[in-house]
Computed example of a mutant assay.
Amino acid sequence: MRLRLGTAGRRRFWQSSKALLLLPITLIVVITAVDMKAPTSIHLGPALVIAPALTPSFAGPRTTAAVGALATLAQILIAVTHGGIGTSNHVVQIITLAVLSVLVVLYSALRERRQAQLAQVRTVAEAAQHVLMWPLPEQIGPLRIASLYLAAEDEAQIGGDLYAATRCDDAVRVLIGDVRGKGLPAIGEAALLLGAFREGSHRHHGLDDLVTTLEQSVARYTADMEPEEEAGERFATALLVEIPDRDQTTRMTSCGHPPPLLLSPGHVVTMPSLHPSPPLGVQVVPAKVEHTLDVFSFEPGDTLLLYTDGVVEARDTRGRFYPLAERVARWTDDSPEALMHHLRRDLLAHAGGRLGDDAALIALHRAPVDRHRLHGHGRGHGHGRAAVRQDVAGAEGP
């Protein structure tokens, strides 16, 4: 699909370039015709330089050279019409136009070479970014997944925000985090966290041990790589969620990261109670930090929405933050893919088309089960949902 789109795009570009080529050619014809009919005291020939000067904006050096040669021939024709090619004024005009055309061709060649180098760098950067941020599968365990990443830095596909999901025994573990900074400079620390999470998820049975491993990895990185002028300023927030396949009691622990949103059918949005510990890397030599393990009920038919602060801190022209919980209430019954589509369009519209910080979202949807299975566990589900509502009320408080 990408190859077809690329080929079609090049074809459209070439067709538009051929259409734009009519502009300098038309200028040459018009200027030449008018100058040949104008009185000898009026000299429009110097304006012919406009034609080769415009051509590099849509064509390469060969086309530019052809337009420059055509403009020079037109200047010679004008000279023959007005007093002969040997007059000093016409000789100077012809030489000047030829020299300027050569300079424009050289500029066009250098510009084309620079564009080729930039395209190669972009290709390498995109490949490196894809290796770092593996695409999430559409289905993992009992969950359907959709994700969205909006990088604040131009030409970047990822930055300081990160996410990953992996299978571990009979559960799915998900990480979403936010490294201090944005864009390409923050990719190194994001890669560190992702690697530590993917490796540690299969070595540790509990989230508390896993988050301790992440803390130690960040501490080693900052000790070895952090510049002295940035001492104590490199840290990362992280939220780890563990979703069992058969148990609806979902566990999570947060290191300074905002809590997820639980979307239930019927435009119901709740926020599970969360007791975050300090962000990763705040302490250069990490002490033993007690990470609270929060639990909530993630029932069939629900969607769990994880996000980074770049989403809720996006501002509109009046400086108002993006009201994520209010907006997603409209789309609680949508699929994860449709939810991401709505959020992308709505978030960019709120921020005026450009975000001030990287933003990432993950939607995890637990597929509904049949009525027979629901009937066998109905009471437990209802109790879990009530507990969630009570936790949310307590978290919001007076």
Score class of each variant (00 low, 15 high):
H204P: 00
A329N: 05
Q75E: 13
D370H: 12
P46C: 07
W134H: 11
G380C: 01
D346I: 12
A156W: 06
H381M: 15
L136I: 10
A395C: 04
R234N: 13
Q15F: 08
V392A: 12
A79W: 08
M340E: 05
G376I: 00
A146L: 03
L106C: 07
A69I: 15
S17A: 15
S88N: 11
I94D: 04
Q139D: 06
V179K: 00
M36G: 02
L44A: 11
Q120N: 09
P142M: 02
L73M: 13
P39D: 12
S217L: 02
T40D: 14
T81A: 15
F58K: 00
R10G: 03
D154L: 10
W331G: 03
E299N: 12
A329F: 00
T249R: 14
Y107C: 03
G256A: 09
A190I: 01
D245E: 12
T7V: 14
A51I: 13
P56G: 05
E228T: 10
H383S: 09
A314S: 14
M225R: 12
T222V: 15
S16I: 14
L262T: 01
G45V: 14
A127S: 12
V105K: 03
E396A: 11
R389I: 11
D35E: 06
E229K: 09
P286E: 06
I78K: 06
S335Y: 03
S147Q: 15
S297Q: 09
T308P: 05
L73W: 10
S41R: 11
H43F: 06
V289M: 11
R371W: 12
D346M: 09
H341K: 10
A165R: 02
M1W: 05
T26H: 01
T64L: 08
